[in-house]
């Protein structure tokens, strides 16, 4: 029975219902998230924006399986979130293994996937090419700049070709040109592989450029206050710099910035 698809009848890849996250002791609890409802469907590119400390990382950590919600329900593909269960994570810091070379860090991910040893060098070269670090496989991680390290971390997360990709401000440390290049890369990749992405950023511009849907969060306690569907052209062919100069992009970015400004004011 072919029917028009409604969002709620589709199986959600990520489902958060009434999720709260608390840190600290019972005496002095910090409520990082309070009653958050989020549903993310397969192939969506959802961007979280909001001021520093509003709980973006906390939300991502719940989905990654590193944080258990104090209340509410968190599900990834119908099961309890568990680290390493198919979600690729790019953390806010590169978190590379210093005892391994750049290539060794990628090999670590490939080994966990069971990629045969002989296939790894080729895959590593290809991944490094993709993040703009060709020929860097033999380098020591600490010889790299912060932005280069973050790109290796991105390559390491991409190595598994995960169906769900969680990214926490991955491009914050990059120069404008490299950032644009990688934004295009991630956008194209997600479109090509149909990857579901949950992406955190501070930048309204980046949110509109990448997202198919933007969730605006506010602090005190952390919650989702607004949602903005983005309908900029998607797909592998779309050029990020062309998108950026389109009037549609400017309009959406303006609207999002407006929403973010209003969201920053606590309460109506």
């Amino acid at each position: 029975m072919p029917r028009t698809e409604e969002p709620d009848t589709r199986a959600a890849v990520v489902e958060l219902a009434g999720v709260s996250v608390r840190y600290g002791s019972a005496k002095a609890p910090v409520t990082a998230l309070d009653g958050v409802d989020v549903r993310i469907h397969a192939g969506e590119f959802v961007v979280l924006v909001g001021p520093s400390g509003c709980g973006k990382t906390s939300l991502l950590r719940v989905v990654a399986g590193f944080e258990r919600p104090a209340t509410g329900r968190a599900r990834v593909r119908g099961s309890l979130p568990r680290p390493g269960a198919g979600a690729g994570v790019v953390f806010q810091q590169p978190r590379l293994f210093p005892w391994r070379t750049v290539g060794g860090n990628l090999a670590f991910a490939l080994a966990r996937l069971g990629v045969p040893r002989s296939d790894r060098p080729g895959r590593i070269a290809e991944l490094l090419e993709r993040v703009g670090l060709p020929g860097m496989a033999g380098r020591r991680t600490w010889e790299l700049s912060g932005g280069q390290q973050q790109r290796v971390a991105l390559a390491r997360a991409l190595a598994a070709e995960p169906e769900l990709l969680l990214m926490d401000e991955p491009f914050a440390a990059l120069d404008a040109l490299t950032r644009e290049r990688l934004q295009g890369e991630v956008r194209a990749l997600a479109g090509r592989l149909g990857t579901t992405v949950l992406f955190v950023t501070h930048s309204a511009e980046e949110a509109v450029l990448l997202g198919s849907r933007v969730l605006v969060m506010a602090a005190g306690p952390g919650r989702v206050v607004a949602e903005l569907p983005v309908d900029l052209a998607r797909g592998p062919g779309t050029d990020v710099s062309a998108l950026r100069s389109s009037p549609e992009f400017a309009r959406l970015r303006g609207r999002l910035a407006e929403i973010m400004r209003r969201g920053a004011v606590p309460g109506p």
Partner: peptide, 19 residues
Amino acid sequence: QLVEAARALGSGPTALLLS
């Protein structure tokens, strides 16, 4: 942080210990 990164990549207890 490194333990989390390894777990996110699918490392089980043994791989975590040895790798």
